[in-house]
Amino acid sequence: MSSLRNVSAIVEKEWRHYFGSPIAYVLLFVWTFLFGRFFQVAFEYFLLASARQGGMEMGMGPKMSLNEWVLRPLFQNMAVVALFVIPMLTMRLFAEEKRQGTIELLSTNPLTDWQVVLGKFFAATGLFGFMILVSLVNFVPLWVYATTAPDWKPVATGVLALLLYGASLIAVGTFISTLTRNQIVAGILSFCAFLALLTLGWADDPAAGPLQQAIAYLSVTAHMEDMTKGVLDLKDVVFYLSFSGFGLFLAQQSVESQRWRA
């Protein structure tokens, strides 16, 4: 009960900070703008291609899938955008507290390290979720103007994939932010770490050895694949949750151990 209150107090404080400074607005703008743009591009391409196909085959060919042509590229593009956006959400989380000395306020009040770490993680994930939520406006015309309403499930799984993927990156970013008192350093390191996690996926090759496959399994982007196609696999959800949990565990350990090294 009291731990819930402490976590929510931290969340509230972080949100106040995000929206009390330009950070939240800038990120919201960048994210929704790019989301809209990628949606538009994918959608126009889809319309063009389906018109062409319709002309050629007189509607006899395989039906073009909105999921395959619009949602999948859109969510995967946004996953790349997230690589840039999330470091900006997470870099200040602990680095700023350390530089300002306010970490001393947090650690001399009756809070546990876990409550602080979780509060910050939920605040950043919440803001990221809010960004995704706002950009869903783009889909409204599909339901309003399409003759047959598209299936909502692929959109839902795509959003879930993006959120889980974002949460994993945020957990790692939170951990990296505990390592330094310099926000910029934390931001750059997080970005590098995210790129490294992305490239892990490139090792994926069915012919490769077990080690290489194990590495590829750790790729945060690969696990989005099915969900962006509208297929919800519990395996992927578990992967993201445990990935986030591990990042947060590292963050908590780091915060705690710094007390001993100080």
Binding site: R5, N6, S8, A9, I10, E12, K13, R16, H17, G20, S21, Q100, G101, T102, I103, E104, L105, L106, T108, N109, P110, L111
Partner: peptide
């Protein structure tokens, strides 16, 4: 920690918060 009130040499404060908001945050974590 529940029984201690502490100010370090440079008081740890959030510069972008208002005084009352800051104290409200502190009252919650306390």
């Amino acid at each position: 920690k529940r029984r201690i009130g502490y100010i370090p040499e440079t008081p740890p404060l959030y510069p972008d918060m208002e005084v009352a908001d800051f104290l409200s945050f502190c009252s919650k974590i306390k």
